[in-house]
Design a protein around this nucleic acid. Structure first.
Length: 421
RNA sequence: GGAGAGGUGGCCGAGUCGGCUUAAGGCAGCUGCCUGCUAAGCAGUUAGUGGGGAAACCCGCUCCCGGGUUCGAAUCCCGGCCUCUCCGCCA
């Protein structure tokens, strides 16, 4: 979230961010509450000061063996008044937090202003495959080869779930291993993480309160299924002050991701393109504020390196303000081209969040030379989302015989298998 | 799930019948001073957060969290969370 003081001092900037991100505008309520809060604090603290002084006098009087009944009676009234102001204050602060949690991060000036039509392609890599036959979509390929089973997924879990089998399952596992090992070689520390997290954790990275409808909630234990490894991975040190010199922290984790996809019915739903559960390898960085922008570039490059190694054509798009996530300040989407569905599929979003998330999750770092602890900057990016990456592999590496060649770099991870037939 | 113990400052650790404890003492750190015997001595200093102020500085809050009792709570009462030990259960 944004610092209250920052909001107070930059209302125009914040209002523009709200508008550019198409968020509901409750800035005036918030600013009104903020000034009320400060008025109440002033009054309450004056009373508390009086109470403290007089209580001390009462203590001194009693020690000297004198009576202090008058002062006690007087302080009873003061204390009651202070208490009722405290109750008011608590209510005001609850409301402030309520709105504060709903104000989006301010987009970086690099971001094009506007809706998704303003997303700007910043570069592309590779060529669309030139096949001498009509390419099949992945669900046809997978079904014929017996490596993809949509029906079985529906049987056990309902629509939006799928099953991989044999070489299909193995390729998924190979991709996960391949990606993690590449990132570990780039000094990301591998993690295994909880897939269920508390509401507080969801709030820390910004999924709650806004995205409650898009996530699975376990009512009996009030836990939430993670929609991305970003959530647990970024929150690992929430609520703490890191020792000086802790940064940068670079982490990688593979987790399944769970998304209700409420309201997305009928859109890109064939095959594995949009499902309720998918695997993903995620990168998270926690860095010094000054280095955040260059860390975003290297993070994006690390994700791109996977696509390049797999020889999959892709394009990089800088998201416009209206397409940015709630917490994001700047974001590159990586879209891989899949020839069977003839579409650019989003396989990664690489974002920087400035101090928006670290403030929400109360993560700070102690400065080297004393002074106040400060909020580090956080970043994350998928590298990569699995099903869509695999869709691109199946479709782009398909042969006229209906088989799928295994990308060179994956062969060692597939036990030497070169073709799925 | 059952029984017990416990949660105090960067760390260890005290806190008596509620007031003189933001908090003793020790360690670590920092700053001076001193010293030829140095894994030494002396003095001072070292939290976070909120409000006010141009600033110096003043004030509030914080002894796991939230309530309560009280003029006043680290200290008493209630609820919650977490940690540890033992038992049970379990992949």
């Amino acid at each position: 979230m944004l610092d209250l003081k920052f909001i107070r001092e930059n209302p125009d900037l914040v209002r523009r961010a709200i508008r550019d991100k198409k968020a509901p505008d409750h800035l005036d309520e918030l600013l009104g509450l903020d000034s009320r809060r400060r008025a109440v604090i002033g009054e309450a603290e004056a009373l508390k000061h009086e109470r403290n002084v007089v209580s001390q006098q009462i203590a001194d009087a009693k020690k000297a063996g004198r009576e202090a009944a008058d002062a006690i009676v007087a302080m009873r009234a003061v204390s009651e008044r202070a208490q009722s102001l405290d109750i008011q204050l608590r209510e005001i602060e609850e409301q402030i937090l309520h709105w504060q949690l709903r104000i989006p991060n301010v987009p970086h000036p690099d971001c094009p202003v506007g809706d998704e039509s303003q997303n700007r392609e910043v570069r592309s890599w590779g060529r669309k495959p030139a096949l001498a036959f009509t390419p099949a979509p992945h669900w046809e390929l997978g079904q014929k080869l017996g490596i993809y089973d949509g029906v079985a997924g529906t049987t056990v879990a309902g629509s939006g779930f799928f099953v991989l089998r044999g070489a299909g399952a193995r390729m998924q596992r190979a991709l996960i291993n391949f990606m993690i090992e590449r990132h570990v070689a780039n000094e990301y520390v591998e993690h295994r993480l909880p897939y269920l997290v508390t509401a507080k954790t969801m709030q820390g990275t910004g999924q709650l309160p806004k995205l409650a409808e898009d996530m699975y909630h376990i009512e009996s234990d009030d836990l939430w299924l993670i929609p991305t490894a970003e959530v647990p991975l970024t929150n690992l040190r929430a609520g703490s002050v890191l020792p000086a010199g802790s940064l940068p922290l670079r982490s990688v984790a593979y987790t399944p991701c769970f998304r209700r996809e409420a309201g997305a019915a009928g859109k890109d739903t064939r095959g594995m393109m949009r499902v309720h559960q998918f695997d993903k390898v995620e990168l998270v960085k926690i860095v010094e504020p000054e280095t955040a922008e260059s860390e975003l570039e290297t993070l994006t490059a690390d994700a791109e390196a996977i696509l390049q190694a797999l020889e999959l054509p892709y394009r990089v798009r800088l998201l416009a303000t209206g397409d940015l996530s709630f917490a994001g300040a700047k974001c590159y989407d990586l879209e891989v081209y899949a020839t069977g569905v003839d579409a650019w599929l989003e396989v990664s979003s690489c974002s920087m969040f400035t101090d928006f998330q670290s403030r929400r999750m109360d993560l700070r770092v102690r400065p080297k030379d004393g002074g106040k602890p400060y909020h580090p900057h956080t970043l994350n990016g998928s590298a990569l989302a699995l099903p869509r990456t695999m869709i691109a592999i199946w479709e782009n590496y398909q042969t006229d015989k209906g088989s799928i060649r295994v990308p060179e770099v994956l062969i060692p991870y597939m036990g030497g298998l070169e073709e799925i037939a």
